[in-house]
């Protein structure tokens, strides 16, 4: 089957039930999306499918249609997305394992809601678990990124 990841078309030959996460990580060597739980309860696997957030650990690859974006496609060290830049500015990460998922969820939130308040952030981000407890800085970085994005488009 064919899937499109970060703008590149790939041919993969796997069981249709294989979750997208494992197609990305083990078939395509795209290791940005992380394995944390396998049951959509930690968010470390979050990618975008047609710009919408998805927990790739729970999406059978046979059901995926459209353009897949992983953290690597959102931005690179030399060309970071505003959300990633805000994350670096606020030194959000501790161990960093959950952060690709956090960033993908945050970027999706800001697409839908350019000026999220605390309640909106609570609703959009509480399915992304961080065992290191970086939540205060995640919140601050989302608000900073939101402002940067609004200013850029103004």
């Amino acid at each position: 089957m064919q899937i499109n990841v970060n703008g590149t078309q790939h041919e993969v030959d796997v069981d249709e039930e294989m979750p997208l996460l494992w197609v990305l990580r083990d078939e395509l060597n795209i290791t940005g999306p992380k394995f944390g739980c396998g049951i959509a309860m930690c968010g470390a696997c979050t990618v975008h499918i047609n710009g919408q957030p998805a927990r790739s650990c729970s999406m059978p690859v046979g059901q995926v249609s459209g353009l897949i974006t992983t953290i690597e496609g959102l931005g690179t060290p030399d060309a970071m997305h505003e959300v990633q830049a805000a994350w670096v500015e606020h030194q959000v990460a501790q161990c960093g394992y959950c952060q690709p998922g956090q960033i993908m969820s945050a970027a999706a939130l800001l697409q839908m809601n350019p000026n999220p308040d605390d309640e909106a952030i609570d609703h959009a981000m509480s399915a992304n678990l961080c065992r290191c407890g970086t939540y205060p800085r995640i919140r601050a970085a989302i608000k900073a990124a939101a402002q940067n994005i609004r200013e850029k488009s103004a």
Partner: peptide
Amino acid sequence: GVETVMCSTCHAHSNSDEPHGP
């Protein structure tokens, strides 16, 4: 979930095969 998190973020077109999966 438009205002919060889309239900389809975690809930796929079929039941998860994993115990306690969505």
